[in-house]
């Protein structure tokens, strides 16, 4: 349960039932290990997203198995697939509905840049409409790559000034 910036260790013999830590460390520790994804499965990449959730790759090892289709209950939106101009407003609306703090993973070439679909109907990268934290390359990325992205995101989350942000509200 140790995250890298947990400064003060816990020794029950010395301190009894008390833990002393920084608020940031605790909040970030909680957040990193229960990133609930909002699976924005749009196209082919969604299949690999499902595969990461299934038994072989088992995303629950990283605390992110609770795929919630309700944006209110999720922390990280995984945009898996081609975002078309028709879909983009809906995607943005879902993003707006997610509670703060929220993160976005752009999974696959299409979500990152439009990928192989250079055409009139495709949004050329989901970062034009929502801010993206982690990009994953690949068409489709292997589930391992998605897991890697998740770990990268956890690293990012664990260094945030969460307590300050909370107070800023």
């Amino acid at each position: 349960m140790v995250s890298s910036n947990q400064d003060i260790g816990y020794n029950s013999k010395v301190e009894g039932g008390v833990i002393v830590s920084k608020a940031d460390a605790v909040i970030n520790w909680i957040r990193t290990h229960s990133l609930w994804p909002m699976p924005m499965g749009l196209a082919c990449c969604a299949i690999e997203l499902m595969a990461s959730g299934a038994s072989r790759f088992d995303i629950s090892r990283f605390g992110a198995e609770v795929m919630r289709f309700s944006p209110r209950q999720s922390d990280v939106m995984i945009v898996a697939g081609t975002v078309t101009y028709k879909m983009a407003p809906a995607l943005r609306r879902i993003y707006d509905q997610m509670a703060d703090p929220k993160w976005v993973i752009a999974m696959g070439a299409c979500a990152s840049t439009g990928g192989m679909y250079r055409s009139y109907a495709t949004l050329q990268g989901v970062d034009r409409i929502v801010p993206v934290d982690v990009y994953v390359s690949g068409c489709p990325p292997r589930p391992e790559a998605l897991l890697d992205a998740l770990i990268k995101l956890q690293d990012k989350v664990s260094t945030e000034n969460s307590a300050k942000n909370l107070l800023k509200g």
């Binding site: 101009y85 028709k86 983009a88 407003p89 809906a90 943005r92 609306r93 439009g114 250079r118 055409s119 009139y120 495709t122 050329q124 034009r128 409409i129």
Partner: peptide, 16 residues
């Protein structure tokens, strides 16, 4: 297609 989102984000359909 959605004027509200277009106003909020300034996103337009652009030539690829």
């Amino acid at each position: 297609s959605d004027p509200e989102i277009a106003a909020n984000t300034g996103v337009k359909v652009k030539p690829a």
